[in-house]
């Protein structure tokens, strides 16, 4: 599964939002999720893609997280 597609799927599930309403520009803050939601998502991404991911404040949109995860996958 593509990284961005997976991130959107996880966010849609966590926030009860339609996946079609989330895109690369969507900011996590706009979805009303908190730091533990992001940690949950990071752990699921680690498992899915076999990476170690540290969530930092500057990773604040779907697009930025996608870039970070893709870079970690190499």
């Amino acid at each position: 599964m593509e990284v961005q597609e997976k991130i959107i799927e996880l966010l849609a599930e966590a926030t009860d939002t339609e996946a079609s309403e989330i895109n690369a520009d969507t900011a996590f803050a706009d979805l009303g999720i908190d730091s533990l939601d992001l940690t949950e998502m990071a752990m699921q991404l680690e498992e899915e893609f076999g990476i170690e991911l540290e969530m930092k404040p500057e990773i604040n949109t779907v697009g930025k997280l996608t870039e970070v995860v893709e870079a970690l996958r190499g």
Binding site: S35, L36, L38, T39, E40, A42, M43, M55
Partner: peptide, 8 residues
């Protein structure tokens, strides 16, 4: 307590 690290 560091919330995110504790959670993980």
């Amino acid at each position: 307590m560091q919330g995110q690290e504790t959670f993980k």
